[in-house]
Design a binder for these strands. Structure first.
Lengths: 189, 189, 189, 189
DNA sequence: AATGAATGAGGGTTCATTCAT
DNA sequence: GATGAATGAACCCTCATTCAT
């Protein structure tokens, strides 16, 4: 009695789509990885044509991979907003964002360059969530109000991205980012 | 009787090297420019083989071009260090750095990706100069001392790069970067 | 006790072969249709492997499909030969041939290009029938005798094909074809 | 004093462009030839990338090749129109057209399918020239007037194409085409 | 010595066929 | 036995480099 008849014939297809996706995500995590279809296919143990067919083009594959990586991040931002104060959410989330981006390095390049539908949507969701945190923190009196929330959001996002890109990864740098940015955002006066 | 007939032939070579370099620098300044050898050659009014021959490969050309763009920035950092207080130098320099990187957008990609010798050296020089500013500002009591100078340097450098990369360029973002970062670096206590 | 259990299993096979054939014929009738195996399978509501297996290769499938379309044409030629005078048969048949080829546009390309056994045989049958019409009409004194029947047959066949291929289809052109060709075939003297 | 300084550096380029063009034309003349870029390049003794570069894409190459083949045909039609009566021009030209199309077999496929600018223009010129012949011949009282000139032109053009396509080529067929079509076009009454 | 042109390697994509379910 | 998926071959195209002029 649990969705019995519908996904009948795709046990291996789903598995291989998953393999291709995982391979792409794994390569996205490596700093200097070659992101060709062939490289992704090799990593997945599949043929090149298979991964193309599974997604309908390289762009769609990258879109899916980046989205797959980004989606839990956005969800986590939403969860934090619901659970605690906006400022606390901001603090926690920024730390986790850096950790994520550090662990999935090449995602950042994709985020900058391409125009991929799902990724774009998720990024917008991420921006919206951070902006809510900023606005909430302003109302809570936790951060300064002389800079527009949208600007603060962009600043936090882009600098997080940059910090994550540092080679080699550095926890000290991530900590410094959090400390300096949040201190710099304290209410003036 | 010194340098008999040898440098005469090289006059054209020097001129063409300069032309290729200028062309590459100009293209590096444009956001979406095509950085193929042929495009650079066309911009320079030269043949494709000439620009390759003048540098011995595309990588070397890019190294030279990026270095050419970076060199005045490093020199400017040095000059500021000599002219004024370290903190004042830091403030001024960060503003100019953002402006430079915003104006020479594509340089950033090259800075991240490749490992080019001259560029790497210059980047090291840049890091060293900023690190001197940080250390000086610490001695001046102008900034906090609970974060290692090297970490602060990396933080400032990488975030400047990220802010410059913002699309579209935003002066408000650059201002916010300066304000928030420098406020966040104020001495604690 | 004859044919014990064997043909039962083949009921589905026969049905699917029919479905694939109909699908291919339908696509052959459309001018710009995509004639990939997958497209034919989709049109048939079958899997791609099924249509291949049912015929043992794409070429064999096309052979069968084209033959299926051509077969009634040949039979019609035979019937006309039996029913009426040779010249009358010729007149009627040419008109119908053009109409058929116009309605099943893509068949023409296949007729020209490939060398498919069944199709080749049918085409030979078609040629033979037309040739009989020509010879009969000669005996009836209805057409000129200074051109070899085989040549006249080829001329009529190939020009019919060309007229059918006209884009956009034109009834005026078909009429002109009939008028001019038949007038041009009138007995000399 | 004869165009001395302008085409300085292209002796080999022109030669190879010519080679590629000739190769394409040669393959266009063969009935079942493979018209891939690689096949053309092999025929020309060049690399595949070279022929692409020389024309900027496969379509442009085919356009040039077909146009190169078609251009003298159109010019010949124009010349005939200037030299003699329209009907005589028509008779002569149709014979030559068949001969040409027989000798350059595959041109016909390209003429049917693609939308190539130069080829399309030339084809329009060809149609216009033949139409002028028809109209002139009507005024001369040499051909029937109960079929629209445009229809006659299409009929002659498409059937010439079809006759040329006959395999194996047959002079008897070409002669029959001319005889039957022109007799069929005689004035009625 | 400069250069336009040639090229070989590599990219993404499509498709007829084969295989595992 | 039917099938969705896998695949290897083939296609067109781009580009950094090399060569002949």
């Amino acid at each position: 009695m649990s969705t019995p008849a519908e996904p009948k014939r795709r046990a291996d297809a789903v598995r291989n789509r998953r393999l291709a996706l995982d391979a792409a995500m794994a390569l996205l995590a490596e700093p200097g990885a070659t992101l060709t279809v062939e490289a992704i296919a090799r990593q997945a143990g599949l043929g090149a044509a298979t991964v193309v067919r599974a997604f309908g083009g390289k762009d769609a594959l990258l879109d899916a991979a980046v989205s797959g990586l980004l989606e839990p991040v956005v969800r986590r931002a939403r969860d934090l907003l619901a659970e605690t104060t906006a400022y606390q959410a901001l603090q926690t989330f920024l730390g986790e964002l850096i950790a994520f981006q550090t662990a999935h390095h090449a995602v950042n390049d994709q985020l900058d360059g391409l125009e991929l539908p799902a990724t774009t949507a998720l990024r917008a969701g991420l921006v919206a969530a951070v902006e809510e945190m900023i606005e909430g923190a302003r109302r809570e009196g936790a951060i300064r109000t002389d800079i527009a929330p949208a600007v603060v959001t962009t600043l936090l996002g882009r600098t997080a991205l940059a910090v994550a890109r540092a080679q080699p990864p550095s926890q000290a740098l991530a900590d410094a980012y959090l400390t300096v940015l949040l201190d710099g955002l304290r209410p003036t006066g």
